[in-house]
Design a binder for these strands. Structure first.
Lengths: 197, 197
DNA sequence: CTTCGCGCTTGACACCATGTCAAGTTGACG
DNA sequence: CGTCAACTTGACATGGTGTCAAGCGCGAAG
């Protein structure tokens, strides 16, 4: 089952994601996406009336393609703080490569489009909720460092594993997603877990 | 001594920085900057032929206004790894509030303007050099955690203290620059320094 | 077979921001 | 008074987004 019933919409979204993932083709124009999808620019506008709505749909598309829920099932199921922390970092780092490109595109539209801003905020909010749950579990286990409040720890973890960090480490620094996961795990563990490590 | 001799240029750069720092006024148009500077749009173009060159000049302007060198003198002078780490985080966190807005603007121009991309890369490269020197000092003292290579530690530190992280923590999370510095210091110390902490 | 409707195409156009061009104004200074 | 430099006004080119109108092809229903 795909996220889109309509085959033309599917072609459009596939082309959109492909263009966004092709860093050489920046900035990405609507006309280019249409060309890549093999349809006219106006046909694209028939399905997605604005650039922002197109990107929002593309974001939903990659979410279902990558099967978000499957990725995070394990981290949600974990109850112990340490296991939850490991699981969420593992899940997020393996999920991110599928969505960075379109997440970044959505982020760049925040200033100009309200809908895009809302869509982006929503996604980021979900990640933050995951971080908050993780920190709460650590605190419940008595494992949270006394140096940080729960709120601070949540924000710190959320920032550590942000899309921007991932982009920088994979693009500018050339790390593999696995390396990112390993170092994130190291940093989060050392920074959040108190007492003897 | 100002970074610009010409009073009109000074007015323009001041207006540019003000507009960029006013988050409500996004996206920032050249016409708006001119209006705010009290001159015509064309007068602005006489001084700065493109939007990108204007922003690059604005970046240089805030650098001299905020006196970069003074901020980082102490961290450059420090020889011990731990002191160097504390000093660079302190310096960077106190320097960042002055430049976030224009740094972000420059970053957003990377895709469309080569000069802006170069200017941004140059600044970020300087920060990375500072991180590398810090990590090297830690390694020389035998204080670097065995879990990370020098390269990984440099990239990790560079990402931890990135402009994007600072923006997120101050804007989205509402932290003060001081809080950011404190938590960055905590995280960097725990993540990079090996052995007993 | 005809006709209707849907999805698509072609092509023109409005809008808006950036950047260019030309002509005119103002004021300082010789 | 003449000149030069800095600035202004206003028109215009360019390029991307988004709109509009007319037409085409094709399958389904009459």
């Amino acid at each position: 089952m795909s996220s889109v019933q309509n085959p033309t919409k599917a072609k459009i979204l596939t082309a959109t994601v492909a263009m966004l993932e092709d860093r050489a083709a920046r900035p990405v124009r609507v006309a280019d996406i249409a060309k890549r999808a093999g349809i006219s620019r106006q046909a694209l506008y028939l399905h997605y009336p604005t650039r922002a709505e197109l990107f929002i749909a593309a974001a939903r598309h990659v979410d279902t393609l990558a099967d978000v829920d499957r990725h995070f099932a394990q981290s949600r199921a974990a109850t112990g703080g340490r296991e939850k922390l490991s699981a969420i970092i593992e899940a997020w780092a393996s999920y991110l490569p599928n969505v960075v490109a379109v997440a970044a595109a959505l982020r760049d539209l925040q200033d100009t489009d309200e809908g895009a801003a809302a869509a982006y905020a929503d996604r980021m909010g979900a990640v933050r909720d995951g971080c908050a749950a993780t920190v709460a579990a650590l605190a419940a286990d008595g494992d949270l460092t006394p140096a940080l409040s729960e709120m601070e720890a949540t924000d710190a973890l959320w920032t550590l594993v942000s899309v921007e960090s991932f982009e920088r480490l994979t693009n500018a620094c050339g790390w593999t997603p696995d390396a990112v996961a390993r170092v994130w795990h190291h940093m989060a563990t050392r920074a959040l877990i108190g007492g003897v490590c």
